[in-house]
Design a protein around this nucleic acid. Sequence first.
RNA 1: CGGGGUAUAGUGAAACGGCUAUCACGAGUCCUUUGGGAGGAUUUAUUCUGAGUUCGAAUCUCAGUACCCCGACCA
Length: 399
Amino acid sequence: MKQKELLIKTTKENPKDEKSINAQLLIRAGFIDKLGAGIYSYLPLGLRVLENIKKIVREEMNNIDGQEVMMPSLLPKENWEKTGRWNVPEMYKLENNKFGLGWTHEEIVTPLVQKYTSSSKDFPKYIYQIQSKFRNEPRAKSGLLRGRDFIMKDLYSFHNNSEDLDNYYEKVKDAYFKIYERCEIKDKTYFTLASGGEFSSAFSHEFQTITNAGEDIIYVCKKCGASFNKEIFNKECICGSKDFDEKKSIEVGNIFKLDDKYSSVFNFKNEESKNILMGCYGLGITRVMGAIVEVFHDERGIIWPKEISPFKVHLISINADAEEIYNNLQKEGIEVLYDNRDKSAGEKLYECDLIGCYLRIIVSEKTLEKLSVEVKKRKEEKTQLVEIKNLIEFIKNEL
RNA sequence: CGGGGUAUAGUGAAACGGCUAUCACGAGUCCUUUGGGAGGAUUUAUUCUGAGUUCGAAUCUCAGUACCCCGACCA
């Protein structure tokens, strides 16, 4: 992609109506555009980031046999009335009062699975989607961290018995950690015991990423590492220790067992004449994007993890023609953003740091004399001189 | 939903109740520039909406709306 043609405008000044770091940087660097509180457009760069996160999530969900579907967002009132969730604060109701916008999908996925199964032999089933969710947040805030229109992956599992549910629950937990590992926030993400909430009998588990921008407080046991959400924290760990670290964090995932809360409607029983049991597993795609920016940035801008970077390579020419190098990189299938604009060197470098692609290549008169270019990782200070004839191989090794 | 704050050009800011609403950046055109946001020329506004006070309102008052922050809420 040539930067001259990209729909992007970066700014030096922070927008005055955003205080959170993720919103400030993402807007300044041209990834997102604000339409209202908790409502954002994703511009070409921002959409590439989202797609990268979605790709990781899809791969890990498919690895645990998840089947992707897409359910509607426009949802009939009747579905919600059956479960008593029509009159909840989260629901955006449409003017005609016959439909509401989807803020979760138990009401849709359960009848769907019921319709396409006919006996307990059809189970288990694992159904997920990646889709816009709408929640009437009383207070949208912190940029992408709490939106009213946001993107979420929601997986629903259906089981014959609780052992099967328990086993799958563990598999989802592992899959989530793989996702956070690939997003490079695993080190800062804790598997946290939390309240089950109104619709789940026991406890739920949250994946909490440590950041000051977070809106939750968790307590991490210094002895065994177990962590607890403030809402259920009772001052003594399961290991018996009373020594905790208190940390601010953002919930980047939430999994819980619904048991038969919604699935008691299935009109067939399993072998033990028990109901089908459900698990529900949420992961906020846009929230993860915001959390990554909160975790990975410096005073100059965003520092994207390798797999998330909108382009793997940002190619910059200073007083030189980088067209041929750009074409060669593209031919090799390397995602490259080429700054071919007629701007001063300083401006290009500042923008490059702000946007924060994983690798930076600078082509200049100075290094072309040595038949070389400069390559630098955004997260590192050191720059390497690489001969042009070895460039493709060098880059491929880095990616 | 309670409390606090803000609203002026595309962006960020300035302007005592009084002159043609000012500055920087961005963007457009022209010229010179090119290793860390370069320089000159030129162009760029319904001061959030509605009412009121006043000879006169960006400025004061009231109402509304939007946004930010704190809290409550957060399957």
